[in-house]
Simulated assay, not measured.
Amino acid sequence: MNNSENSIKVVQDYFKAFQNGDIDNVLNLFHDNCLIVSVKDQEREKEQLHGTYRTKEEATQFIANIINLFNTKEFVVERVVGNENVVFANGKFTHEVKATGKLFVSDWTQLSIIEDNKIKEYRFYEDSAAFVIASEA
């Protein structure tokens, strides 16, 4: 398996673990010194989903925020492509916002940089305006 194929497999394993509810394996796929940017690269409150997370410990908070905010109705991975250690993925999802019961529907794009067979850098982009609307009571 070449470097590109290996990097793609790490990201595919991440999606598979998440879809199977295997949160321990999801977290295991993050590098100890990872960087996660959810929509915007800025500081955030602990329970706030969008913003910057650093380290595997904060990756745990990132996953907890997703689980605490949403009931996922559909999560589709349309493609995963990579070159060396850089992997792009995209798709669409439908989440029910737990606090409001409203649906949050969005296309998404993810950039991952793989190091030591782990996700070292993770950037996830979605329709944040749709999230705000679905979160309003």
Rank of each mutant, 00 (worst) to 15 (best):
S4K: 13
N2M: 13
N25W: 03
V26H: 05
I113G: 02
F88V: 07
L35T: 12
E96P: 04
D22V: 06
R123T: 09
D24K: 14
F124N: 05
N3G: 13
L35I: 13
D116Y: 02
A137Q: 14
R54C: 11
E45V: 09
L69A: 13
K9L: 15
E126C: 08
T94Q: 07
E115K: 07
D41K: 10
E47D: 14
A99R: 00
V77G: 12
E5M: 11
I8K: 15
Q19I: 04
S106C: 01
D24E: 15
N2K: 13
E5L: 14
N33Q: 11
G51T: 08
G51D: 06
Q42V: 12
K92S: 14
I119F: 03
Y53D: 05
K102Q: 09
R54M: 09
L29R: 07
V11D: 12
I119Y: 03
R79G: 05
N6H: 15
A130L: 04
Q48R: 05
K56V: 06
Q48M: 12
A129F: 08
R54S: 11
N25P: 02
S106T: 05
K98F: 03
S112N: 03
F93I: 07
A134P: 01
D24R: 10
K46C: 08
V86E: 13
I8C: 13
D41Y: 07
I8Y: 12
F131V: 01
N25H: 11
G51N: 09
Q48T: 14
I67Y: 11
H50P: 01
G91Q: 04
V87H: 02
G82F: 12
R44M: 09
F88Y: 14
S38N: 14
S112D: 02
L69W: 06
E126W: 04
K118Q: 01
Y14E: 02
E78H: 09
D13Y: 07
L27K: 08
K98Q: 07
Y122Q: 01
D41P: 06
F88P: 00
L49E: 06
N83A: 04
T100A: 00
N2G: 15
A137R: 08
C34W: 02
K46M: 14
L35P: 02
Y122D: 10
F124G: 01
D32E: 15
Y53I: 01
V26A: 08
G91A: 02
